[in-house]
Design a protein around this nucleic acid. Structure first.
Lengths: 200, 200
DNA sequence: TTCTCACATGTTAGTGACTCACACTTGGAG
DNA sequence: CTCCAAGTGTGAGTCACTAACATGTGAGAA
């Protein structure tokens, strides 16, 4: 079986499966009994691994709940969006597009996760950190388009503000999902910002 | 000495002193040896109290480093600012004024604290949480000015974006304080946002 | 003054997240 | 078959944080 491109994607697949198993059982338990009331010992047992193995896959208990694979997607979409337009608009569209994509297959998971974060203070901090990392990614990727220091600041500020707006939308959605779906809420949030900027 | 208004502000003052002592020694140790390398036990010993007492004054180790008494001030300034103007402008001015005030007496402490947060991932999460709380305060305080649901969203979005902008300014300042003082950096950040919103 | 209550603090024994050093198992290559 | 390496388990330990209970010390009532 040496014909498959990589030396041993056997192991890779097994590791991915273990990872998914841990994360799946963790989320299930978090939703069932709450984040704090769930010990990593339980998660490990449910996934059929030892505590040590749990920590080899996830650096902290928080990471299992707050890690998002979407950051990379969003960052790429922003990068690929057309230059020239106002940056806030580009980010708005990238977020909208990326979330619609995620939404199509993982709506419930995204909702569950966001609600869990919303009700667990410890996870909120981790969420913001994740966002900060994504923002830095985007700023670094886009800083090629500009050269001067003022442009750099403009970039950072625009990205930060855009993410703040999107986060409001996301939290509002998680708090009351029956009042409208996420892509709409994103649009509404950005619209509300434009509106407010003009007439206070 | 019973003429002083309250029954026993003696105790109050002593508690305040203990609190300041703990916080002072904590910050000193954090700056000397780093946040992670400083055990609560050391802080307590330095302040001459037990570990238990430490936790009675501060719910977590993070709180000693990331707690800011400025939130209340900022929130009040925003509330008191003139209605009618665009909200982002009001928050900008309130932040500017409040920080200038803090700045006059506590510049170095503010810088130290911000740098500590900047270099300690665990504290960044706490910082964002603090900001979220302040934002909610402001939104609640100002939601009297508006009634409808759209106005509420507008409020939340404007406040979140404004704080995001201000935070960029603060972090930039902490990363390179020699490139300009904080109030200026705040102005520049808001200016950079306006600029970027128009010409991308 | 003295008794006593309230409140701040200390002590001890935990729990749970997370780490480190080391031993064991097992699939795959020579 | 043997040896290597990667994945995993074990056990002991650190540190943040908590709960139950004991102690000391002002302050007001008797």
């Amino acid at each position: 079986m040496t014909e498959s491109g990589n030396k041993s994607d056997w192991r890779e697949r097994k590791k991915a499966a273990t990872r998914r198993s841990i994360q799946g059982h963790a989320m299930r338990l978090f939703l069932e009994k709450g984040y704090d009331a769930t010990r990593v010992e339980e998660i490990a047992a449910a996934a059929g691994v030892s505590i040590m193995t749990f920590f080899r896959y996830f650096p902290t208990k928080e990471h299992v709940a707050a890690e998002d694979d979407y950051d990379f997607l969003i960052a790429r979409l922003v990068e690929d969006s057309a230059d020239g337009e106002p940056l806030v608009g580009r980010i708005h569209q990238a977020l909208r597009g990326g979330l619609a994509q995620i939404y199509a297959t993982d709506r419930q998971a995204l909702l569950d996760r966001t609600r869990l974060i919303l009700t667990t203070p410890a996870l909120q901090g981790r969420m913001w950190q994740n966002q900060a990392v994504t923002q830095q990614h985007i700023v670094r990727a886009l800083s090629g388009e500009t050269v001067d220091k003022d442009g750099e600041l403009r970039l950072k500020v625009q990205v930060a503000a855009s993410f703040a707006i999107a986060t409001v939308a996301m939290l509002e959605w998680a708090a009351a999902p029956e009042e409208g779906e996420l892509p709409d809420r994103i649009d509404k949030a950005f619209a509300a910002f434009d509106e407010g900027a003009r007439k206070g």
